Amino acid sequence: MNVQVIMRDGEAEYAVLPWVEYQALLQEAGRTAGAQPPQAAETLPRFAHLAELRQRRGLSVEELARAVGISPAYLQLIEEGQRDPGDAIRYGLARALGINGWEESA
């Protein structure tokens, strides 16, 4: 078995193994193996498409900015790629646009 152990503060915290081997372990344990791995973060929309996502939902810059709690000017800077949103803004954008997963990986 090909297992990678991730350590933190000298203690084993995670074990990572190939998907096929994970599936085999599930089968041996009597559990139903999943057909496919969880969706990768790469399938999430990128912040480069923020303006398009906002427009598709029929929101103005002012409406989305108000929902997130930032100024419209700052939202435009994010849409133009001139600013990288922090965690709180990322969470607010994800919530306002209904995009699960942006909080962690965008």
Rank of each mutant, 00 (worst) to 15 (best):
T43Y: 07
L97H: 10
A96T: 02
Y74V: 01
A33L: 04
L59T: 07
E11K: 07
G101E: 02
A51P: 05
L64S: 01
W102K: 04
Q55E: 14
E52C: 04
E80I: 03
S60A: 09
Q39T: 11
V5D: 06
A35F: 01
P85N: 01
L93P: 10
D9S: 13
G86K: 01
E103G: 01
L75P: 06
A94C: 00
G34A: 12
Q76T: 03
R8T: 13
R57K: 15
I78R: 05
R54F: 04
R90Y: 02
Y91E: 06
G86H: 04
G98R: 09
Q23K: 12
A41P: 15
Q39K: 10
V5S: 08
L64G: 01
Y91N: 02
A41I: 11
A29N: 05
R66S: 01
Q4M: 08
Q36T: 15
A65H: 09
G10L: 05
L97S: 13
V5M: 08
R54G: 03
L93S: 11
P38G: 02
D87P: 12
D87W: 07
Q27K: 15
E42A: 15
L93G: 07
W102E: 03
H49A: 15
N2T: 08
T43R: 12
M1G: 15
I6W: 14
A40C: 06
Q4L: 10
E104Q: 13
Q82T: 08
I99D: 06
E62V: 03
E11M: 02
R56C: 09
W19K: 08
Q36S: 09
I70A: 02
A96P: 07
L53Q: 05
L75D: 05
A40I: 00
A106W: 01
E80Y: 05
R95I: 05
H49D: 15
G86A: 00
A106F: 04
Q76L: 03
A33R: 07
A48K: 15
A35W: 00
S105V: 07
A12G: 10
E28A: 07
M1N: 11
N2V: 06
D84W: 14
Q55D: 13
A41W: 14
H49Q: 15
P18S: 08
V20L: 11
T43G: 10
L59C: 02
E62A: 06
L50V: 00
D9F: 13
R31W: 14
L53S: 01
H49K: 10
A24Q: 10
A65P: 09
D84K: 12
A65T: 10
L77D: 10
E62C: 05
A12M: 11
R8D: 11
G30T: 02
A15S: 00
A15P: 01
